[in-house]
């Protein structure tokens, strides 16, 4: 009993700490839910941001908005309005003052290390704190075994468009996993095949598995995820079974990490709205 209680307490502490590093907890998917994505100039959208086991179900934790980056169609960054964080979801508003496509992105990343010492797993940095190379060197004892230092680059995005879709805000940064439109991100309809291109460091990401989850999983017996794979040009195509929001995600691990990390995990997740024709 005692040990069980203890583990529940630890779990609670870890969960609380995980709030500080929203994208680190891979078991819970971070998501953005825009109120609409196809709008006219001058309209407002409101976006919810949270992390939960099943995308769009508000039952776990709000997402911090510190790393929110919104790019307007002209390529400039714009600030959200009315930001607020509740227990289960954060929210912000955005007025679409320019014609074209806006990119709403949550960027996360950092370096973390884990090792074994005296039969216990140790980690650096402590959750919620930045990685410091000098501090890290002192943190690992000489008796440590199985040292693993990994870097993560996480990108969560959604897109909203006033008027005609444009690509000014969608230029790849060339860092980590990113998605480029072949079919415009806000021109998606049931019965029409959409094609996108996955990029790693700005180059086609070949043979990567992409997972697609439709909204409404709470009202189904199964999440019903669909697995897709990018081709030799990093492209994949999707046939949308029904209108609604979709959660599309992919991740890859490679050895192109920044020192002192030895492996790098890059992830991309995008939220798309599909309309009925």
């Amino acid at each position: 009993m005692t040990s069980r209680k203890h583990s529940i307490k630890t779990q609670a502490l870890l969960t609380a700490a995980a709030l500080l590093l929203p994208l680190a907890a891979q078991a819970h998917k971070p998501w953005l839910a825009p109120s609409k994505t196809v709008l006219s100039v001058g309209q407002w959208v409101t976006v919810d941001a949270a992390a939960s086991t099943v995308p769009f179900v508000r039952d776990h934790n709000a997402m911090r908005l510190d790393n929110l980056a919104i790019t307007a169609p002209d390529g400039r960054s714009v600030a959200p309005d009315n930001t607020a964080s509740g227990k289960l979801r954060s929210t912000f508003d955005l007025q679409l003052t320019q014609p074209g496509t806006y990119r709403i992105a949550m960027l996360n990343g950092g370096i973390s290390a884990s090792w074994q010492d005296n039969g216990q797993t140790r980690r650096y940095p402590p959750r919620g704190q930045p990685f410091n190379t000098a501090e890290f060197a002192n943190a690992v004892p000489a008796t440590a075994t199985g040292l693993k230092v990994s870097q993560s680059i996480g990108r969560l995005e959604t897109y909203v468009t006033a008027g005609k879709p444009s690509v000014g805000a969608l230029k790849p940064t060339g860092r980590g996993l990113e998605l480029a439109p072949v079919t415009a991100f806000n021109d998606l309809y049931v019965g029409e095949r959409a094609t996108f291109q996955l990029l790693i460091d700005g180059k086609p990401a070949q043979g990567v598995e992409v997972e697609l989850i439709a909204d409404g999983a709470r009202y189904r017996d199964a999440v019903g995820e669909v697995m897709l794979k990018t081709d030799g040009n990093g492209q994949f195509s999707v046939e949308w079974p029904q209108p609604g929001l979709y959660y599309l995600s992919a991740s890859i691990t490679d050895d192109k990490a920044e020192k002192p990390a030895t492996e790098r995990r890059s992830s991309y997740a995008g939220v798309f709205e599909v309309l009925s024709p």
Partner: peptide, 13 residues
Amino acid sequence: MGPAAEGGTKWLP
């Protein structure tokens, strides 16, 4: 804010 903030064009989409 803006000419179309709450004008009828809001519902055109």
